[in-house]
Design a protein around this nucleic acid. Sequence first.
DNA 1: TTAATTTGTTAGATATATCTAACATTTTAA
DNA 2: TTAAAATGTTAGATATATCTAACAAATTAA
Lengths: 226, 226
Amino acid sequence: MLFLIENEGMGSLTEENYIKSVYALSQATGEVIVSELAKKLHVKPPTVNSMMKKLALKKWVLYAPYKGIKVTEKGKKEALSIIRRHRLAELFLVNVMKLGWEEVHDIAEQLEHVESSRFYDRIDEMLGYPKFDPHGEPIPDANGKILNDKRIPLNQAKENATVKIVAVADDKKSFLDHLNDKGLKIGEKVFVKRKEAYDGSVVLVNKSKVELMITHQVAERILVEE
Amino acid sequence: MLFLIENEGMGSLTEENYIKSVYALSQATGEVIVSELAKKLHVKPPTVNSMMKKLALKKWVLYAPYKGIKVTEKGKKEALSIIRRHRLAELFLVNVMKLGWEEVHDIAEQLEHVESSRFYDRIDEMLGYPKFDPHGEPIPDANGKILNDKRIPLNQAKENATVKIVAVADDKKSFLDHLNDKGLKIGEKVFVKRKEAYDGSVVLVNKSKVELMITHQVAERILVEE
DNA sequence: TTAATTTGTTAGATATATCTAACATTTTAA
DNA sequence: TTAAAATGTTAGATATATCTAACAAATTAA
């Protein structure tokens, strides 16, 4: 029987989806704007507006008219709990259920809303308490702790430094294909030769000593370390 | 991304829960009444009333004012598809994820609404295309076909016949405990000694030759064969 | 067989999550 | 630096799923 009697702290499925997106989109700059959220969630701005008022009442976000949306510690905890469930679900679908990486995202999007710590604890156990998902994204533990948060978007890396690609912040096929075309893979090191002040594009040298240019848009979606 | 854009044939999570209950509760007599459904789903009768009008429009049920609710072929197909997902999920949680039988029902209740045939086909494959769940309940195949539908409620069995208990139509702990107390188990044979016309209770002789009486209420929840 | 009880229905209210249209503010560009 | 464009908000409408209160029909019992 599915009794979703909402406890104080809990959120509806809709609220869960919003806080997850707020958290994800505010990662880079510390906040996110209404139109960005609306686009991501495929709703209109007024819908986001009213939902943000609601989440602000629950103290999950800080929200003042015409100002950006910021996640509170409470909201972050919620978001990390959902992200944990999503990433564990993805890894489970790939490693245990042998589904293809490209087909698991939509299923994980549904599984992440399953209300059962037993279910997720068993998955965690079966996977051997993994710290990262196959994209290199860290999996928060049951307390919301994330190992290793020193990763930065490639566009924020210093010039003339060698960095390791540890994750991508976008798993759309078109994006992954683009990276493949450029010969960029998670785990590989690249040398940051130059960052163009003009358009934010980045010139890299890959491990085969080939020089290549990536746009700002792409660079900010590649997470690197060191 | 969770896009639950409802296709013509699809039902909302709520509609799925209703048709599943309509199907389950109408199994015995061919129909179910509003108050029974309301009780099962923990809603008030007017809620059931309006949902039945909706499902009647979708041609999932036949529903005339003050008459019982009957499932159509279309509704049965929907119900069986959900039941298939529920039973596969339960078996998966028990056999693959090693969760206890008593704790999987609520999780399966959530998993059954996951929209992904790939997910369920993989579960089916991993379980070796099982035909029955651990309660002895048959699992419909991907086309809604159920193997072996000769099962009848114990109260409909003939007197002076030996029948095999193949399933129970209620998995509440209190009910299962009651059966245990009576020494009745799935897979065991019992002799139907007498059916009381007065109150519908049934007198059985179990395999240890012990005579015992069960009420009509209990008898109609025990499914037997032969 | 009629009165009481049970069961079912209708009407109208509420909460959630969404929309469109109209208006307000902020940002960008001429 | 002001006009245009972009972005955000408010007000009010819609759909779903629920409720309560009042009434209607069917069933049961006196």
